[in-house]
Design a protein around this nucleic acid. Structure first.
Lengths: 343, 343
DNA sequence: CTGAAAGCGCTTACAG
DNA sequence: CTGAAAGCGCTTACAG
């Protein structure tokens, strides 16, 4: 069985290439091709496994039916979940997705954007490092369809989908304060990312609303690469001083799980010695010890929104308003905060 | 800034399209194009963001520099980790990866294979549903480069990378028996998948080696879709009868985490009432309560091997032997089995 | 319905 | 080095 081309099936069937192409693209009826001929073509194609070359098709039609997805890390549970939703929705609409991880490196991300572009993706979805303003502006100038999620560029108008990082963190911090915790630490990443900045602000706002000033020393900003050891240092620092904290907010799931590891190692009891909460969660957060109260991101909604906005963009030639969505998070209360503390 | 094409940069620079193409593809030297001209072309291209159309390039050269990855579910932690490794390695070699989840549906998987093929991927990586023998044979007949991982077709000779499911399960079951457990249950998926079958055999072999016959009633095979409720039923069944089990082996990570959830709900103490172990793990298995002894799969090695074999296949025109690798698992002992039990 | 033809944007011998 | 040309495998007006 040799590889079949359009011309082969045309020849075999004694019809024109035009007819075959038209029929296989569902344009048989509108071109008044007889039912019999259509059936003949369709059956032959199916029987002999005729596979049209998408490269040629894409080149000819000027679109590839492919979407590019650029995320920090496909192995991270949050991104892999969103990727799953995006892929499922995209497939429903006939798109395949090309993905690539930037590993938080702006240079890699920039190259990825260009690489996706030269592969003629029809649209781009990016959870950006937020350090490629130039590329983002290039995309805008070219009117290339793209939507950002998770991380966006506050100073550049674009389509994006994010969650309410500020309010989510404020709420979970208040939850802690309402339970009688007075000295709340915040372990987070070094600044640079918008969601992280928003979470810090939410934390501070909650303290302020409770008439507590957020001591600088309660906020620990650590580097992503060496977070394993730095979380440990941060916790030792927060818990060992004379004025030890009685609660810690972790700004993301892997900091929280490492935090839990460290707390166990240090023999600190959660929530008795210190209560903890996490922004974003691991699916196992309900079976860790103790189960961790978390701010849950609406993964499905994020994926749906992103695809919806992007496909709208791709479909329409008229320039539309930028669409931005800020989705609500959900506070999942578990036992890592204990019950009310009277001191 | 309009979109630039090859002919545009040729015109602007007063050189031929040929020269531009040659230089940009790194064939300047071998075609004796002067250093100055080369620099001129390269600089202009970079400055004006010339992005060659990969569709045209691929069509012309007969390869797309794209690899297709078909897995059951990108959101599953095991597959997302392997996908990350594969993507990283592929990128190093200049390949981008197109991915798609089959969600365990053979029909979807079959369509995906054809879809990837018509997108002219240069090779395919599949963790198969094992129900598309026809497509696999088609790929073989076409001499299309592909390698299977995790799940393969025992009756069809292909390249594949798997782990030692049999021995891994045997070892972890023996670990349980060596600790004095006598009645070991096995909660697994309904048959159909080779790794699952191997794990069951490993479990039985361990029992046999300890002169225990594996009672049929100790093995619970459940459906993937409704595993949440079925794990519960299985555990109730295994623990409530007069001869309750004193240990349970879970054949995969999500069964184990659901098992832990259920055991907590039923107020059964792990490992006192029942010890548990898991084949494959969640990254949080060291902080759940109790930490779960697991058979760890060598995710990096799997990814590396798959890419290595595939790229070899793509690179060589001579037909080579099928390459198969069976990688070792690692037993990670945690406290979910307790210490030696004397009864 | 057909058939010849142009076009998508590249790459790559080939003659000079 | 150039330049004209063929070719990759499709799609799509167009004249008949």
């Amino acid at each position: 069985m040799k590889k079949l081309y359009l011309k082969d099936v045309a020849r075999e069937l004694n019809v024109s290439k035009t007819a075959v192409s038209l029929v296989l693209n569902g344009k048989g009826d509108e071109n008044k091709i007889s039912y019999d001929t259509q059936q003949k073509i369709i059956n032959f194609a199916k029987k002999h496994n005729y596979i049209p070359n998408q490269l040629a098709r894409g080149l000819s039609r000027g679109k590839s039916e492919t979407i590019g997805l650029i995320i920090p890390n496909i192995s991270d549970t949050f991104y892999s979940k969103v990727a799953g939703v995006i892929e499922r929705k995209a497939k429903e609409k006939g798109y395949t997705v090309l993905f690539s991880s930037s590993y938080e490196d702006p240079k890699t991300e920039g190259e990825l954007i260009l690489s996706m572009l030269n592969r003629q993706v029809d649209g781009l979805i990016i959870a950006s490092t937020q350090q490629n303003k130039k590329e983002i502006e290039f995309l805008k100038k070219e009117k290339f369809p793209f939507v950002l999620f998770d991380r966006y560029y506050p100073e550049n108008e674009t389509d994006y989908v994010i969650v309410d990082n500020f309010y989510g963190t404020k709420k979970v911090t208040e939850h802690l304060l309402n339970l009688g915790r007075k000295k709340v630490g915040f372990i987070t990443l070094k600044p640079g990312l918008e969601p992280i900045a928003q979470r810090l602000m939410g934390y501070k706002e909650a303290l302020k609303a409770h008439n507590l000033t957020s001591k600088e020393t309660y906020v620990k900003e650590i580097g992503r690469e060496e977070y394993f050891s730095e979380v440990e240092k941060a916790i030792i620092d927060l818990t060992a001083r004379e004025q030890a904290v009685d609660a810690i907010v972790f700004s993301t799931h892997y900091l929280a799980s490492q935090g839990l590891r460290v707390l166990k190692k240090l023999n600190l009891k959660v929530p008795d010695d210190v209560a903890i909460v996490s922004f974003d969660e691991l699916s196992a957060f309900d079976i860790v010890e103790p189960p961790v109260t978390s701010v849950v991101q609406p993964v499905n909604e994020i994926g749906y929104s992103v695809i919806e906005i992007l496909l709208n963009k791709i479909g329409s030639t008229v320039k539309t308003e930028f669409q931005t969505r800020v989705l609500k998070t959900k506070l999942e209360i578990r036992s890592s905060c204990g019950s009310f503390l009277s001191t």
